[in-house]
Design a protein around this nucleic acid. Structure first.
Lengths: 151, 151
DNA sequence: AGATTTTAAGTGTATATGCAAATAACAACC
DNA sequence: GGTTGTTATTTGCATATACACTTAAAATCT
């Protein structure tokens, strides 16, 4: 029952839980992109950050985290791994606390080389989930961006 | 451009990548459920498995993994953690390789106690994402279940 | 200017996740 | 019935993720 008056049951959770479904689809989709990107030695999680970095130019971790709704400590480790691989580089900043980073030449090369694999995965996933899901995902994403500011 | 003839660009990835959006929404939603469940000392990832275990009765890891599209090694560790907490118990099986498990009494108690927190998170997420997204997620989930059998 | 508060980022710890390889038990084949 | 192959699960390793806490630097306040 979706009746808010009634108390939920374990069966309701099994039948309706949004997190169950979303997390399952997320696993399947992530694996499809990761499979396609494997020959390039990059995972979709890092490609996401690299693409966002390409778009934002030199950007501070905190700013990136707001955009991606990512915890700063998570980004910190990801940045370190990608820096170690030479895909991003730290740039100086007037504020001594800040550690802005940007895409390196190698990072841009990697992205260029990854585009065909990305396209294949993207098409595979679009076919799997259907265009209506993708449309609703876009709307939901906008709503999330507007609603939860993620200090 | 969504034109399959043309080569994708980095801007296309930033503007269209399904994985970026899905993973972001997944992070936000997981955090909402985890926040609600924190007082109970369980995360939504484990609650998912507990609920599936409640529904399936004694179940083998491989069978559970097919249902949830989870890697067997991932489930193996999750089961170990939940067994250590007393929420599930291993049951004997004729096949010496199999390690079927079921919900324990304590596991069922935990689920019962977690229901109100789950309901709050579920409503919060439904409001955030909108009913149309939830509908499409359900359709997409069915398609994933039918399409990718996940050996 | 000096003390306090706020902000930016990194560290410690824990869970979640998946691939590759190892292990163990069953099944099939000759 | 012993060898070979298959299946079920676990382990080793690496990344992704977040919370709590720490550290360092800037901003504010008096």
């Amino acid at each position: 029952m979706t009746n808010p008056e009634a108390n939920a049951t374990i069966d309701d959770v099994a039948a309706e839980c949004i997190a169950v479904r979303l997390r399952m689809v997320n696993r399947v989709v992530t694996n499809i992109y990761d499979d396609a990107l494997r020959p390039l030695g990059v995972k979709v999680s890092q490609m996401n950050i690299l693409v966002a970095t390409a778009k934002l130019g030199p950007v501070r971790p905190a700013e990136m985290c707001k955009r991606l709704h990512l915890d700063v400590s998570t980004l910190s480790r990801n940045v370190e791994r990608m820096r170690a691989r030479g895909w991003i580089e730290i740039v100086p900043d007037d504020d001594g606390r800040a550690q802005p980073f940007q895409l390196s030449r190698e990072g841009e090369n990697l992205l260029q080389e990854a585009l065909p694999a990305w396209s294949r995965a993207q098409e595979q996933v679009r076919t799997l989930l259907g265009p209506r899901f993708v449309n609703e995902l876009n709307r939901a994403t906008k709503r999330v961006r507007e609603t939860t500011a993620k200090q």
